[in-house]
Design a protein around this nucleic acid. Structure first.
Lengths: 229, 229
DNA sequence: CTAGCTTCTGTTGTATACAAGAAGGCGAGG
DNA sequence: CCTCGCCTTCTTGTATACAACAGAAGCTAG
């Protein structure tokens, strides 16, 4: 779920992973220009591997290359965020359904532990601790589905959404944290009951709630510009 | 829905489209080696654009590059076909739901015409005429959803499935052609009724039926090897 | 005859040089 | 002061040269 190719295959693989990570983490903000020569110097390689890495990130939807002008970090428009959430709902719904049908597997145990940690963080109103936990929850659902293509498409999706930042923002809304935990518990219950479609719908409801909160949390603040430390 | 970038931007765009088309059409069969120098000569360019095109096709899942060995046309395993159909079900279900909620748009009219053509072909038991028609039906559903990210992911999906060939194979099974038409009509009826979830489920049922037929039609014949004219 | 090593060929990976175009600055003319 | 046009500069796009490695063929020794 973390990387797309065999590890340490060459400079190219390393560069593309580092670049993707940097963009997702916010090291490069939306609109920033990614000069090939600058990146080449930074990573200590020539333009060629950088170029191929940028091309790959373009297909993944993270950057936009304007011919003979430059490569820029892409910022999803508000409309695009809506579109991505609609797809996210379907893919995670599928993940939950497939996981439910698999019965007790490694991921179910991990989900149990994850929900315990989330409950702790929720009781303490600790958004900083809860945020990565919810991220892990969604990740476990999809990984537990045991569908490699789903994992692939899902990763592209979350990359484009700059997911962590959005979720953190939405969790600060009052009451959302408790509601989120309740929704996740509902999904988990359906999963252990092997109720495939029940799990799918619980998951979809959860994603819809998440979308609603994210859109409201970012209503006036249109996925802000430039970088910000 | 056809191309991924601006048209005629440069040799690279042309090459990647031609290559993709050639692979999907079966000009290069699964397992065939795609030598960069050979392709460069064929397309009259240097290795560089070819290389970038192949890298893009790799991300799209059409080819597999083995480091310092070669690039080969990827053949989806049986397991992978199942995985892809599971995702296809969700994405097309989403498309049908979104289209239904949009009400009367250009695509609905096109769908009406498409169903008429399909009915004609079905009456004549003309699989060769029906096959592209069913392809168009699915395409119109997704395009009509007016969700660019959905269209993007969907295209990757169908590319990997070598969709046309599989569908054609499945339609030859007795009775499948009529059943397919009935399922498509059900989807269309829900769409015109603006019944979003009804449309989603009708579409998902249709895709499931399609998957079942495809898997049975290719049961003993494991997505055959090499090229075949 | 066979096992193991060597070499050799073919492939991709990387670096670099050059070409073509876009964007912005700068000056002349109104 | 504004506007138009040129021109400079910076960017990416393409071609090519070289390096590194995989894989197979062939050779040698036992």
């Amino acid at each position: 779920m973390t990387r797309t190719a065999d590890p340490a295959q060459g400079p190219r693989t390393r560069v593309v992973d580092e670049l993707r990570e940097a963009i997702i983490r916010g090291r490069y903000g939306p609109g920033d220009s990614l000069s090939e020569v600058v990146l080449a110097e930074i990573h200590g390689v020539s333009r060629t591997p950088i170029r191929e890495a940028l091309k790959q990130l373009q297909v993944e939807g993270l950057v936009e290359v304007r011919s003979r002008v430059g490569t820029f970090v892409r910022r999803p428009s508000r409309r695009e965020v809506v579109e991505l959430f609609q797809i996210k709902e379907m893919l995670e719904g599928l993940g939950a359904r497939l996981l439910a049908l698999r019965g007790e597997v490694a991921e179910t145990a991990l989900l149990r532990e994850n929900l315990l940690r989330s409950a702790h963080a929720a009781r303490d109103r600790d958004v900083e601790a809860y945020s990565p936990s919810v991220h892990e929850f969604h990740d476990l659902i999809v990984r537990g589905a045991d569908n490699t293509r789903l994992a692939h498409h899902y990763r592209q999706l979350t990359n484009q959404l700059a997911y962590p930042r959005l979720v953190t923002a939405s969790l600060r809304r009052p009451g959302r944290l408790e509601a989120s935990l309740g929704e996740q518990r509902a999904v988990f219950d359906r999963v252990v009951e092997k109720d495939g479609f029940g799990a799918e719908w619980a998951m979809r409801d959860h994603v819809r709630a998440l979308e609603r909160e994210v859109m409201m949390a970012t209503a006036a603040d249109p996925l802000r510009d430039r970088r910000d430390p």
